[in-house]
């Protein structure tokens, strides 16, 4: 347990030293939040009601799909995994450390947005903060678990970027965080239901817990954990 906790601490520091991670976990999401906070709320003042939720979903999707996978892929597709294996570090530890470290970093970004938005853009705070943070944590877990699957399965950095964008861009456009889903063509809106961001936005904007939203997100999470575990077991045998 001591080794595991130390590993999380090391991974957290490694993420802070990684420029790519800092850009995708903090810099771009917060700069985007600044710009969009100004633009969205001046174009459509109703956006103030969901600014915290939409910008948090943007930050989590960006960090988990564009940041986390590259770091995991670097570890599992190269010689690092061999060094871990012969050095007595279980392969699952690397993935779990990445997961927890990403969770902490991105949660910090989410908290920064939560604190700044009301002061800077007169954004409305969620009615039920406890439910909001539980929803936020669940959505974040789902996103990072999907990012972990990407990092474990896609070895080539070019392909990784492509697959990450295939998840990230539709999450932005089809989930309702940029445009209301009722303005989208029906067929496109249906595709949006295959994305965690759609369910995450529903969950985080509701004042009462809707079990369906949370069950669907937990299904995404369970699926990603099973797929990741299978891959880690396979890497271990190889």
């Amino acid at each position: 347990m001591r080794a595991f906790i130390y590993g999380i601490g090391v991974q957290w520091k490694l993420d802070l030293r990684n420029k790519g991670i800092l850009i995708t976990y903090y810099l771009v999401p917060l700069v985007f939040f600044g710009f969009m906070g100004m633009i969205f709320t001046s174009i459509n003042p109703e956006m103030k009601d969901t600014l915290i939720q939409t910008m948090t979903i943007f930050a989590f999707s960006m960090g988990a799909f564009l940041g986390t996978p590259s770091s995991i892929s670097e570890m599992y597709s190269g010689d690092i995994k061999k060094a871990f294996k012969v050095g007595g570090i279980p392969l699952w530890a690397g993935a779990v450390n990445h997961f927890i470290s990403a969770f902490i970093h991105l949660l910090i970004t989410g908290i920064i947005i939560y604190i700044i938005a009301p002061f800077a853009f007169d954004a409305k705070l969620p009615e039920n903060p406890v439910l909001y943070f539980i929803s936020t944590a669940v959505f974040l877990m789902v996103n990072i678990s999907i990012g972990t699957v990407l990092g474990l399965y896609v070895k080539s950095p070019a392909k990784l970027t492509m697959f990450a964008q295939l998840l990230f861009l539709p999450s932005l456009m089809l989930s309702g965080i940029m445009f209301p889903t009722n303005m989208l063509p029906k067929a496109v809106a249906v595709v949006g239901y295959a994305l965690p961001a759609t369910w995450g936005l529903k969950l985080m904007t509701e004042s009462e817990l809707n079990i369906l939203n949370i069950v669907i997100l937990l299904l995404f999470f369970t699926g990603a954990v099973i797929i990741s575990s299978y891959k880690l077991a396979k890497i271990g045998i190889d």
């Binding site: 001591r2 080794a3 130390y6 590993g7 090391v10 520091k13 490694l14 030293r17 990684n18 670097e74 570890m75 190269g78 010689d79 690092i80 061999k82 060094a83 012969v86 050095g87 007595g88 570090i89 279980p90 530890a93």
Partner: peptide, 24 residues
């Protein structure tokens, strides 16, 4: 190992400690 690597940003001491703790 002949071809072996560690995470790019880990310090030598952190790596030494990390492996040490996993090996008790």
């Amino acid at each position: 190992l002949q071809s072996s690597s560690l995470p790019a940003n880990i310090t030598a001491l952190e790596a030494f400690r990390l492996f040490g703790r996993w090996n008790k």
